Simulated assay, not measured.
Amino acid sequence: MQYQHLFFDLDHTLWDFDTNSKEALQDLYQIHQLNEKGISDFDVFFERYSFHNHLLWERYAKGLIKQDELRWKRMYLAMLDFKLANEKLARSMGIDFLDILPNKNKVFPYTHEILEYLTNKGYVLHLITNGFEKVQQHKLIQSNMAHYFNEMITSEVSNSLKPHKEIFDFALNKTGALPKHSIMIGDNLDADIQGGINAGLDTVFVNHLNTMPHIQPTYTVYHLQELEQIF
């Protein structure tokens, strides 16, 4: 086999982050009775949360903000769009969100089947994720994926973030994998694909959204089952 070690991204590649986060935010919406606080439309609130979350993650990836600020400020800014300025509530919601979110277990179609297929073929599977250590571990357990992966490398433990080469070097060192025998599989062109290229890895772009790539991966798939054509 050309490849021995397969490094997967988790969120948006295997674990359906958008569906799971929407469900978790709906729970928060009910728990904190946001409809009684002037946020009458949940779908609009979720759209604003998603908007701010994306921007804050970009800032976090560049080292401009810390984890704690990301966790509560995405709530605060979304509420502020409804003219609700309540930092205490936002901080409480930030904590509750990370308690609720990892319990959600929606994955993309064919996730378990492809992980089983790859494991049975003798590939060694790992994860490289920009997520938080305890949160990502819990996601894997709740979605019944933990047993497929030998190692999970998070930005929190490696002290680096994709696409920086350091997190990939950390992963290769921890797993004993060589770049020529390894491949990065993910949905994010900048973090996963460019990051993998920076580290000297071949890459697979999991193009769930059928977008036009601005970075050229080694392979592109539009459904996880198509990985069987590569491996």
Rank of each mutant, 00 (worst) to 15 (best):
G63F: 12
M212T: 15
L25G: 01
G186P: 02
K62W: 00
Y148F: 15
Y3R: 10
E156Q: 12
L56T: 03
L56V: 04
L84E: 05
M79N: 07
L127N: 01
G200A: 08
Y219R: 05
I197M: 09
I197K: 15
H12Q: 12
Y60M: 10
E23A: 13
H5I: 10
L172H: 06
K139Y: 13
A171K: 03
R91Y: 09
E151G: 00
N144Y: 11
Q216N: 10
I153Y: 02
I39Q: 11
L125H: 07
A177S: 14
W15C: 02
N210D: 12
Q225P: 00
H52Q: 11
Q225L: 08
N210T: 03
L56N: 13
V157L: 12
D27C: 10
T111D: 08
E113Y: 13
W72I: 09
G200H: 06
L77S: 13
Q4R: 15
R48F: 13
S143I: 07
E151F: 13
A171T: 02
L77P: 09
F168D: 06
G63R: 08
F149C: 06
D96P: 07
P109V: 11
M145C: 14
G186T: 01
D190T: 14
D18L: 10
L64N: 04
K104N: 06
S182T: 08
H5S: 15
P179L: 10
Q229E: 13
F45V: 05
Q30S: 13
K73I: 00
T119P: 00
A146P: 01
F17T: 01
P217I: 11
S40N: 11
A146N: 11
N210Q: 13
K165A: 13
L98V: 02
I153V: 15
A191E: 08
S92T: 13
Q229I: 05
K139G: 05
Q194H: 10
F149D: 06
M75E: 03
L55T: 08
R71P: 01
E228K: 15
D18N: 09
Q2F: 11
L227C: 09
N210G: 00
G131D: 08
T220K: 08
Y219T: 02
L125N: 07
N130V: 00
F42D: 02
D81R: 05
